[in-house]
Amino acid sequence: MTAARMPISLRINGEQVETTVQARTNLVDFLRNEQQLTGTHVGCEHGVCGACTVRVDGRIVRGCLMLAIQANGTTVETIEGQSDSGKLEELQAAFHRHNALQCGFCTPGMLLTAQELLDSDKPITREVIRDQISGNYCRCTGYQAIVDAVEEVAIARRGASL
C-alpha cells in the first residue's frame, strides 16, 4: 500500500481541474481540504447525515461515501458553484424568508437535496418533500420551515395545485 498520489481530472463547478489525490481521500475531504470548497460540510463520515451532499454528473451523492479518485472524469457541483450560477436563487431566497436555517451547517446539503426534487418531474407534496430530505439531518429547525420553503418554490414553479 502506498500513500502515492494518483492523477485525477474532473470538472468542478465548471472549471477543469487537473491534479493528484491519494486513493483513500474521499470526495468531500478532497473538495474541502484540497480545493478549498468548504461550503460542503462533514457531519458523520458514514453516509447518514447528508451534510456532505454534492452533485456528481447531475445527481446528488454523499461526498463521504465516494472516493475522490472515483470522481475522475466526472462533473462535480458543490454549493459554491450552484449558488454562484444562480440555479439556487429562488430556493435560497425562500429559505431566507422562512428562516429555514439556523446554524447553517446542514444548509448546503439540504439545498442540493431539495433542488433535485424541484428539478424532477415527480409530484410534490409536503410529504414528498419530507421524504426527499429525510436523509438530511437538521438539529436546529425542526424541519417545518425547510418544508415550507421548498413547498413555496414548488408552488411558484408548478402552480398552486402542485
Binding site: Q92, L101, F105
Partner: peptide, 13 residues
C-alpha cells in the same frame, strides 16, 4: 444567514 445559504460559512474546520 445569506453567507450560510451560499456555502460561505466560516466554521472552525
Amino acid at each position: 444567514a445569506v453567507h450560510l445559504l451560499q456555502g460561505r460559512g466560516r466554521f472552525v474546520d
